[in-house]
């Protein structure tokens, strides 16, 4: 198979295992390209991409922009804080105005779950979801899986642990879908108040004892507390959270095995992960960032391929 089954990347739940394998295989080639002295390919020189970020982002936005430029696409950036959205314009109106400037593809980050899906059904452009509320963040999940595969090979029957604020995390949900598609065992760990009640119905193991969970896993993905999405008090104090769920070198040293440590960023050093652990030899956090560009190049390339030029 050399073509994606979807025309937009809205979420991992819309993909199948062949799509994942194709994305990873294509990313392998792009990873080789971005390590050459000239890191650019001309494939998308006739494509214009709009990056619409209605929420703050550093690495995702930079990573998308770099991926687009490496593919020779023309790029326009939009941030809601400097736009007419503040004047009351709807999302679809904003996007349609941008599309009338002959934009082919839209990368959308939005605080509302389902925003990418809404756009995909209402506007004539390829949509890539760069995070929609607490719903999905598919490109993060794909780069996470890709980084794990680099270290562990095939993820079938591997034990992957996701720790932290699962309730408010789009990274967790997309990772669960992606890992399960590849046959991995997934466990989530965190305070009861930060783990959705229904999660076990997805076939995910739920554990509240952090040390027990760490002993089970091959890889731990530490998530940040999404304070900006918390409307209530979910744990007594940050200090207590750190004591129970903060990853430190003391805890890692107490395990009788090595595990890989991941974090989607931004890291709150000293909260979910200590500084020495984040910078340790088993940390693959910077690999994730590097792989993010290759994965996003792969996705943009494969989606562009689905839209042939009118002859």
């Amino acid at each position: 198979m050399n073509e994606l089954s979807v025309n937009h990347l809205l979420g991992i739940k819309h993909l199948n295992i062949n799509d994942l394998n194709l994305i990873f295989k294509t990313a392998d080639h792009f990873k080789e390209v971005i390590n050459r002295s000239i890191k650019k390919v001309p494939s998308l020189r006739d494509i214009t991409i709009a990056n619409l970020f209605f929420e703050n982002s550093t690495r995702t936005k930079l990573s998308f922009e770099l991926a687009e430029k490496r593919l020779s696409a023309d790029v326009i950036n939009f941030s809601s804080s400097q736009s007419s959205v503040k004047k009351g314009e709807t999302l679809i109106d904003t996007v349609n105005n941008i599309l009338s400037m002959k934009v082919d593809m839209v990368v959308l980050r939005h605080p509302n779950p389902g925003a990418a899906e809404l756009l995909a059904t209402n506007v004539d452009a390829t949509i890539i979801n760069a995070g929609d509320g607490a719903n999905e963040h598919p490109t993060q999940a794909l780069l996470d899986s890709y980084s794990m595969r680099e270290k562990l090979g095939d993820l079938k029957n591997k034990n992957i642990l996701i720790v932290g604020d699962i309730s408010h995390s789009r990274v967790a949900l997309s990772n669960i879908y992606a890992l399960q598609l590849q046959g991995a065992n997934v466990m989530v760990c965190g305070p009861k108040t930060l783990i959705p009640k229904y999660l076990h119905k997805l076939g995910v193991l739920v554990e509240h004892d952090f040390l027990k969970a760490l002993k089970w896993c091959n890889v731990v993905n530490m998530l940040r507390l999404q304070n900006e999405r918390m409307t209530d008090s979910f744990f007594p104090s940050v200090r207590e959270y750190v004591q129970q769920y903060g990853l430190t070198s003391d805890i890692l040293n107490s395990l009788d095995k090595d595990i890989y440590i991941m974090h989607p960023g931004p890291i709150n050093r000293g909260v979910e992960i200590s500084s020495d652990v984040a910078d340790s030899k088993n940390s693959i956090i910077l690999d994730q960032v590097e792989n993010g560009v290759a994965i996003r190049m792969s996705i943009i390339y494969l989606l562009a391929q689905k839209k042939p030029l009118n002859k």
Binding site: H29, V33, V41, A304, Q305, P308
Partner: peptide, 15 residues
Amino acid sequence: FYRDDFRRNEKILEA
């Protein structure tokens, strides 16, 4: 990735 027929060729080429 350097071909001049990307999106112009019905046959999709694998890298």
